[in-house]
Amino acid sequence: MIDLQGFGALLFAGTQVTLQLALAALVVGLILGLLGATAKLSEHAPVRLLGNGYSTLVRGLPEFLVVLTFYFGATDILMAVASTLFGYDGYIEVSAFAAGTTALGFIFGAYASELFRGAIISIPGGQAEAARALGMTKRQTFFRITLPQVWRIALPGLGNLFMILMKDTALISVVGLEELMRVTAFAVGRTKEPFTLYLTAAVIYLLLTSIASLGLRYLEKRAALGVREALS
């Protein structure tokens, strides 16, 4: 067995933070992705520009740079927003976890907005027309007809993005959040055994991504089951 020199518990705690970070960023990213996709499909040109600008810009930047910028800039941006919108001139604290979640969610959302846009336009227009004819409002049509199908169509792509997100959580170590990579670096500093410890971290990441990919296969199967039933 690999001798972790008493740092096993610390690595385990780091893994938990990594998981929490990935799942929280996933939720933020899904919301931003849907908003982005709706913006891209908007009837108003400025909103479309905003949606396209968001995904094009973020997808062209290194994730690492986005994380650094968010970490150092989150407080500035939030304070500027709070001051102009609400007239609040106090100081706003952004924790490393919140900064990390937002940065990773922001990146995830940019890619997800493309997936969602593709999925939304792939749904036949007749369905929306039929829903409208039945008297559903635009909002009802979106939530009852479009969104459930978008989920199924976008799922494989979203799964890929989630894998990438899980690995990108390692970048958050630079902003001082004690996720897996960060606690590993601490342990390396104390034990002077970088290979053993980084390899252990690598194996933990492999486990996480493997479990996630199994979970995704399960979700995809479930989503596909629904389709067969609907067709029969």
């Binding site: 929490q20 970070l21 799942l23 929280a24 960023a25 939720v27 933020v28 939030l78 609040y88 106090g90 100081y91 706003i92 604290e93 952004v94 924790s95 976890f97 919140a98 979640t101 937002t102």
Partner: peptide, 14 residues
């Protein structure tokens, strides 16, 4: 995770 994130963002210090 979301709750932690939201709380930390909302936590305004005087």
């Amino acid at each position: 995770g979301m709750a932690i994130a939201t709380l930390s963002v909302i936590a305004l210090t005087a």
